[in-house]
């Protein structure tokens, strides 16, 4: 069982590069511990800025730093970062086109029993609706590492959502296929296409394996790049599938499922089923309990896929 959460992988990459690149700056809103960024703050105090519990300040200060050539990574719980400082993300980051990377930590229902105030089931929809904002939900620590390394190379705004808890590896340390803004194909099949992002990739992959054992061939895509969505890969596999299943830790509206349905509907119309959290505060529980309750697990995804293709 992997013990390293994706947020820790982000810290590791930033620490590796901060030594050489003094323009990398990490900002936290009293969130260095929950973001796993305390080691960065200790090792690079000159490249770390604490703003206190003030998300609007966090994002605006990041934009000002970026305007002056810094490479800010602003980390704060996704629930607050994607709502409290939404306008700062819209105007100071996306509209002013500043090189700010917004790191939404403990995303989705990571905070479990803490309740809806601490859940970010709306962040994909909110951030994706901002022009010039990119949205990424990496699935495991290895992909997170590749993504952060790629993001260090560009000068554009982005929002990255990671969960709080360690998740099982999808990839291997020295075998993590990754191309920026291209979905990763986890398996290929012609009966059904399953598209997932973030923590839903693991159960989607397992569902693909379970379906194969029953003689149903599924394609499983890790669509970590929710915006810009990799429509080319999506449509290539949707074309040959009988149905498409989108799975996400998000509200039913405006997330991965909505975007997948938009593309498939316009380009190769067929049945699209969106698996997501409900349009209501989620039931109290830890992530696994919540996912199991709503069928966001391998069994649920496999059952949904079979129903969608009439098996």
């Amino acid at each position: 069982m992997n013990k390293i959460p994706n947020r820790q992988a982000i810290c590791e990459v930033l620490m590796e590069h901060a030594k050489e690149d003094r323009d990398i700056v990490v900002l936290c809103s009293d969130s260095r511990g929950s973001a796993s960024l305390a080691p960065f703050a200790s090792a690079f105090p000159e490249q770390f800025i604490e703003v206190g519990i003030a998300e609007q300040d966090l994002v605006s200060i990041s934009a000002g730093l970026a305007k002056c050539g810094k490479k800010p990574f602003a980390a704060s719980p996704a629930c607050f970062l994607s709502t409290r400082s939404y306008e700062q993300a819209k105007i100071d980051v996306a509209y002013s086109n500043t090189n700010v990377k917004l790191i939404g930590i403990s995303g989705g229902v990571s905070y479990g029993a803490l309740g809806m105030s601490h859940h970010s089931a709306q962040d994909i929809a909110a951030m994706s609706a901002i022009p010039n904002m990119r949205v990424y939900l990496p699935s495991d620590r290895h992909q997170t590492r590749k993504l952060v390394e790629a993001l260090l190379e560009d000068q554009k705004p982005a929002y990255i959502r990671v969960g709080r808890n360690p998740v099982e590896d999808i990839y291997e340390e020295d075998n993590t296929p990754f191309a920026m803004d291209k979905a990763t194909v986890l398996r290929e099949g012609s009966d059904v296409l399953i598209v997932a992002c973030g923590e839903m990739v693991r159960p989607a992959k397992e569902a693909g394996e379970a379906l194969a054992a029953e003689g149903i061939s599924a394609t499983v895509l890790d669509m970590y790049c929710v915006k810009p969505l990799d429509a080319e890969t999506l449509l290539k596999y949707a074309e040959s599938a009988k149905a498409v299943i989108a799975v996400e830790e998000h509200s039913p509206f405006g997330g991965l499922g909505s975007m997948v349905a938009q593309q498939v509907g316009a380009n190769c119309p067929k049945k699209v089923v969106c698996m997501s959290l409900p349009d209501s505060p989620v039931i109290t529980g830890n992530s696994k309990e919540v996912f199991d309750y709503y069928g966001l697990n391998a069994e649920g995804i496999a059952a949904c896929a079979k129903a969608a293709i009439g098996k």
């Binding site: 800025i49 300040d57 200060i61 000002g64 002013s96």
Partner: peptide, 20 residues
């Protein structure tokens, strides 16, 4: 330097610039 229009953004942005 920066887009504005919604109020209350300029000062914290300038804090970032001054820190840089």
């Amino acid at each position: 330097e920066m887009n504005s229009g919604s109020l209350g953004h300029g000062l914290p942005v300038c804090v970032g610039m001054a820190l840089a």
